[in-house]
């Protein structure tokens, strides 16, 4: 079961428990549990809960690391409202997420379906498609991307075969974000692997029955494969959205840390980083921005969960 599936089960059980009177119960392994959980508990409080509380406090302060934080109330949030670069970075990030995630998922699903069920060369294709997603987050690939989409890179070399002179994609405000979207699509391999595993869970007998009934491959895809795969599509959708929101390295390397040209690749996380760590280090403002990011991601995830009622089919 996926991590999201587990959360769903826990939520269900908790709901069910509330209605019945909870019996007092003893736990067998309280002591051992504490010992084995100690590293996690420490990490959870020191690196997650504690920092979250501090960050929530800093969001209402002016703090530059050198002087103690000054309480400024809602100043950071009102400043955000008028911060044009922040709006620009939201626009860039949303375009990136809403364009690249559907493409990634569609391509991953399409290729997974093509590769399904013991076809010849399966493991070869799987490796070739999966490899880029393992390397996609590295600086080396971002460097490569700058050149592939550069003025004299291979993309323009290819277009040149048809007599088209392409622009310097990476340096052009209209296209720079597009190159990053293509880079994200290039890493469709990891959701593809998850789809492949999901396809394997669908019992053969459904397809056998459909064959007997004379249903064609297309019909089988839409009436068997797709409905049974919806929980996995949902899982991939939620995770890919969350990851896409947090992308940083590619934008940083491709734009040389600026988010340029003309802020066209200024991802939200990149702007947050600039605010926090470029002088003057505005860590209060960056913390406020981080909480806005949590709201956006949380909100979008909630919407995803809410919408899932209408299209995700759980077989339980």
């Amino acid at each position: 079961m996926s991590s999201l599936g587990e959360l769903r089960t826990i939520a269900k059980q908790t709901k069910a428990q509330k209605s019945e009177k909870r019996a007092k119960r003893t736990y067998r392994d309280n002591k051992a549990g504490f010992v084995f959980m100690l590293p996690w508990i420490t990490g959870f409080f020191v690196f997650t809960v504690g920092p979250m509380l501090v960050s929530l406090y800093l969001a209402f302060t002016d703090y530059s690391l050198l002087q103690p934080p000054q309480w400024t109330g809602l100043d950071n949030f009102t400043r955000m409202w008028g911060d044009e670069r922040l709006w620009k970075s939201l626009e860039v990030t949303f375009i990136y997420v809403f364009v690249s995630v559907p493409f990634v998922l569609a391509l991953a699903l399409a290729v997974a379906v093509l590769l399904d069920r013991g076809m010849r060369g399966l493991s070869f294709y799987r490796s070739v498609f999966y490899l880029p997603s393992l390397m996609g987050g590295s600086v080396a690939v971002a460097i490569l991307w700058r050149q592939v989409f550069g003025y004299d890179g291979i993309v323009n070399g290819f277009l040149g075969l048809f007599g088209i002179q392409g622009p310097g994609w990476v340096a052009h405000p209209d296209y720079a974000l597009g190159t990053l979207i293509v880079l994200n699509i290039w890493t469709f391999g990891s959701p593809m692997i998850i789809f492949l595993a999901g396809l394997r869970q669908i019992p053969d007998m459904y397809y056998e029955a459909a064959n007997v009934d004379g249903a064609g491959k297309v019909r089988q895809f839409f009436t068997i494969t797709l409905p049974l795969l919806t929980p996995i599509i949902f899982f991939n959708l939620v995770l890919q959205t969350i990851f896409a929101f947090q992308n940083f390295t590619q934008a940083y390397v491709v734009s040389g840390g600026t988010g340029g040209p003309s802020d066209s690749t200024l991802f939200y996380t990149l702007y947050l980083y600039q605010q926090a760590f470029n002088s003057p280090m505005q860590m209060g403002y960056a913390s406020a921005m981080a909480w806005l990011l949590v709201l956006f991601i949380g909100g979008l995830t909630a919407v995803n969960f809410w919408l899932s009622k209408y299209w995700v089919f759980y077989d339980d």
Partner: peptide, 29 residues
């Protein structure tokens, strides 16, 4: 193991997978 708060801590642990790390970035630094 069967210990108190297992379900709660398990749910919290799963939740941290979804939490954007930027929110802890500045305080950790």
């Amino acid at each position: 193991l069967d210990f108190r708060f297992r379900t709660l801590t398990f749910a919290l642990m799963l939740g941290t997978i979804l939490l954007p790390f930027h929110v802890v970035l500045v305080p950790q630094f």
